[in-house]
Design a protein around this nucleic acid. Structure first.
Length: 817
DNA sequence: AGCACGCCGACT
DNA sequence: GTCGGCGTGCTC
């Protein structure tokens, strides 16, 4: 009886495809195996989702055999396949797209048709003739193909299929092995093989090395090492290069699993100074007990570990994971940005050593694959990383931790717009594992789950070692302006005084402002029009160091001294403050202060982030000025003052979460103050001192904030009391965007089922990189209904919307931009 | 995603 | 007349 496999391809293509299991793979395929399958004219990577003995009627004549099984063991276990399927469904993506982002680089490449010029082709090109050997005319596309393949040896793109196949039939070019799909797990072994040996020209083989290579490969593929063993290493690579350039020989890459194990990966040094765990506070012990009891019951469960800053949440995670490891279970730990929290990595490595695989996006591809395999094999038991670590192939998963659960970076803002925190709950549930969401400032979503009793809240209300919460002072900038009679400084009198005290006591301060650059708006002094980006609908920011105006959305940069676009005037009036101006203000207020700045402009330079953090931690600066980067979980023991330069900056955001985001930032930044022996002090400057987000942050009153904010959301019908999705429509063609937006509205209405539709309206940034953007908001009482409406509308719209218009479905958006 | 097919304006 | 521009449909 013939066997068939249902395969999902790693392309944005809906559905499963059926393939015949060839005799040599009979009994050798399992669900989750990675396979190479013919797909149209190409071969692509796919994953086996099911094995059957029949295919739907009508498909029998279409079914083709699987070309290859790519690994000995299934690359994906069922739980991850299940999670990928869930995510594809929930976020309106295809399983293929999800797998593409879930797997390490190289696992999902598709093969490409590539062409190399043959020696006959080269001779023809050199002859300069314009008639082909068969008398036909040499078209420009043919000439382009030939010339390009001389230059680069291989042409993948812009090779028109017709020209290429005509040239191929004349023997002027040759198809090259599709490398892509074979590029798999890590360390690739290069194997050489011949491509059409009869094309070898005698003159090429006059070299004894080339002849030897040619003859050896005539009898079958060899790795470079094997060839070296047969004919010696001398001149071997030159010979291969030449033969390859001539189209006589081609490289092929073979999956590592078919060849052998990789070398042991480097993980960096294990820091062991902290290896003795600190004693737990009573609250920590209770929290741990609760979690461990639930773990031992074996049915899973979810917790919100709601602890104030410096209450020792990390220690609870570490202990809970240690318990899981004792029971032979593994763990996933999601953190907002691993690059910003090297201490966390160090603490995990100190406690668990090589059992931790730290995953970041900055790792080289081979290293990412190596760590992925270490988890997959069970050699490493704990995966620590940003949102994509939710896809880590941890064996016998026991615990998933999401640290700083409220952080927006868990939401992916392109491709498959998934939320790592939410998928953590799903994966934990599927695996009957424990989920721990940790935060000092829980999201409204997490609190909603607590209200629904789907998540149990555990409080850590006190800081460790009985440290006090920092004292918070507010500067009302409206009053300040009155008091100084218009001579407003960026740093108020109070904040300046506090800074001076700190510097004179040899302590440290952090100043926070959520905007980089020097000025955030530059107006023309003549016609008052602001300087705007030519490609985006945003104002340009003045950067003093480089004396330029820069767009923070597309990267456009122009000299500061260029004439106004409307009136050609050169007179400019800068307004608004960014971190660069704060640095100047600090120097002005405290001339002997040593100041460092930390924002994306700084971290763009490689290594600058670590250097800056290290310089500040080691006391080589007194003041650190930065954007939210300074708000993350850094531990700077000598920081006794935190200044928030303008608390309202984020309140003005056109987003229903502006208050929540502001509150979280204020609390997180404030939490950097007074972590060691010295008590901390926070100065908040604001124009809206009565705002509830500010008042709550002032009194460390998270409960109060959550109560007010959840009432606001409930009243407005916003998440978490409704489920939201955005549909964004983008294109360079403005008219097409408007027409498509109207189509989207109609399609949603037709499929509406007790849901609210708002829009289309221009997106808050209505144009980015010349692309016009409109959006609609969809609000639904339940996720299922939301999904249904979007799904039906999407199918309907696929036929209607022109291809140059992009439709983006953003389920559970974290911002509206 | 790619790749082919098919229908329209610009010239090897 | 062909070339190649892009809009449309399909891939087991």
């Amino acid at each position: 009886m013939t066997s068939y496999a249902e395969v999902v391809v790693t392309l944005p293509v809906e559905g499963r495809f059926h393939y015949e299991v060839p005799p040599h793979l009979e009994g050798a395929l399992e669900i989750g195996h990675r396979v190479l399958v013919p797909f149209g004219r190409r071969k692509v990577t796919g994953f086996v989702l099911a094995l059957t003995h029949e295919v739907p009627a009508g498909l029998l004549d279409k079914v083709r055999p699987i070309a290859e099984r790519l690994d000995r063991e299934p690359a994906l276990e069922r739980d991850l396949l299940q999670l990928a399927t869930f995510a594809a469904d929930y976020y309106l993506a295809t399983v293929g797209e999800v797998l593409h982002l879930a797997l390490p680089p190289g696992y999902t490449a598709a093969s490409k048709v590539r062409w190399t010029i043959t020696s006959a082709g080269r001779h023809f090109l050199e002859s300069g003739r314009d008639r082909l050997p068969n008398g036909a005319f040499l078209s420009t596309s043919m000439r382009r193909l030939l010339e390009a393949s001389v230059k680069r040896a291989v042409v993948a793109k812009d090779a028109p299929a017709k020209a290429a196949s005509d040239l191929e039939s004349l023997g002027l070019v040759a198809k090259k092995v599709a490398i892509g799909a074979r590029r798999v797990g890590g360390e690739l072994t290069v194997v050489a093989r011949t491509v059409g040996p009869d094309q070898a020209e005698p003159h090429l083989l006059r070299s004894p090395i080339r002849r030897a290579v040619y003859e050896a490969l005539g009898s079958g593929e060899r790795s470079v090492d094997e060839l070296a063993a047969e004919i010696g290493r001398r001149q071997l690579s030159e010979a291969l290069k030449r033969l390859e350039a001539e189209g006589i020989v081609a490289k092929k890459r073979v999956a590592l699993s078919a060849v052998g194990r990789p070398h042991a990966p480097l993980e960096g040094p294990i820091i062991s100074e902290n290896a003795v765990p600190p004693a737990l506070t009573e609250a920590q012990s209770r929290a741990l007990r609760t979690i461990v009891d639930r773990f031992d019951a074996g049915q899973g469960g979810a917790f919100l570990l709601h602890g104030v800053t410096a209450s020792g949440k990390t220690e609870v995670y570490l202990r809970a994971i240690a318990h899981a490891l004792e029971k032979e279970k593994g763990a996933v730990v999601l953190v907002p940005e691993i690059a910003l929290t090297p201490q966390l990595e160090n603490r995990f490595r100190a406690r668990f050593g090589d059992r931790v695989a730290v995953l970041h996006s900055a790792l080289p591809d081979a290293e990412r694959r190596a760590r992925w395999r270490r988890l997959s094999s069970g050699e490493a038991r704990i995966a620590l990383g940003p949102r994509s670590a939710i896809w880590a192939p941890v064996q016998r998963l026991g615990i998933i931790v999401v640290d700083e659960e409220h952080d927006p970076s868990f939401k992916q803002s392109s491709d498959v717009r998934y939320n790592g925190r939410d998928l953590a709950l799903v994966r934990a549930h599927q695996a009957k594992a424990i989920a721990i969401l940790g935060s000092a400032t829980p999201s409204l979503e997490a609190m909603h789950l607590v209200e629904q009793q789907r998540v149990a809240r555990i409080r850590l209300a006190e800081r460790v070692e009985g440290r006090p919460m920092p004292a918070v002072e507010v500067v009302d900038l409206v009053e300040e302006r009155r008091a100084v009679k218009g001579a407003m400084r960026l740093l108020s009198r109070l904040l300046s005084d506090r800074l001076r005290e700190v510097v004179s006591k040899k302590e440290q301060a952090i100043l926070f402002l959520n905007r980089r650059g020097f000025n955030t708006v530059v107006y023309c002094d003549e016609c008052t029009s602001p300087r705007r980006c030519p490609s985006c609908d945003v104002s340009l920011t003045f950067h003093k160091g480089s004396n330029t105006l820069a767009c923070h959305y597309c990267g456009h940069v122009e000299p500061f001294e260029s004439p106004c676009r409307s009136c050609k005037s050169l007179a400019m009036q800068p307004f608004g403050a960014g971190t660069e101006r704060v640095v100047d203000a600090v120097v002005e207020a405290v001339p002997d202060a040593r100041v460092l700045r930390l924002d994306r402009d700084v971290t763009e330079r490689a290594g600058e982030l670590d250097r800056t953090l290290e310089a500040f931690r080691s006391g080589r600066a007194d003041v650190l000025v930065g954007t939210q980067m300074v708000a993350k979980g850094h531990d700077f023991p000598r920081v006794t003052l935190v200044g928030i330069v303008l608390a309202d900056a984020s309140l003005a955001f056109p987003d229903f979460r502006a208050a929540e985001r502001t509150f979280q930032l204020l609390v997180q930044v404030s939490g950097r103050a007074g972590r060691a022996d010295a008590p901390g002090r926070v100065v908040i400057q604001t124009l809206q001192r009565d705002h509830y987000a500010l008042q709550a942050a002032l009194h460390h009153d998270t409960e109060r904030f959550l109560a007010v904010e959840s009432e606001e959301r409930r009243r407005a019908g916003y998440p978490p009391y409704a489920r939201m999705a955005l549909v964004r429509i983008e294109s360079k063609d403005k008219g097409a965007v408007e027409r498509a937006a109207a189509d989207v509205r109609r399609a949603l209405e037709r499929n509406a089922d007790g849901i609210k539709i708002r829009g289309p309206v221009p997106a808050p940034i209505a144009r980015i990189r010349e692309r016009h953007r409109r959006m609609l908001m969809v609000l639904s009482p339940t996720p299922a209904r939301l999904n249904g409406v979007l799904r039906r509308a999407k199918i309907e719209l696929k036929k209607k919307i022109p291809r140059r218009v992009d439709l983006i479905f953003d389920v559970d958006p974290v911002d509206l931009l």
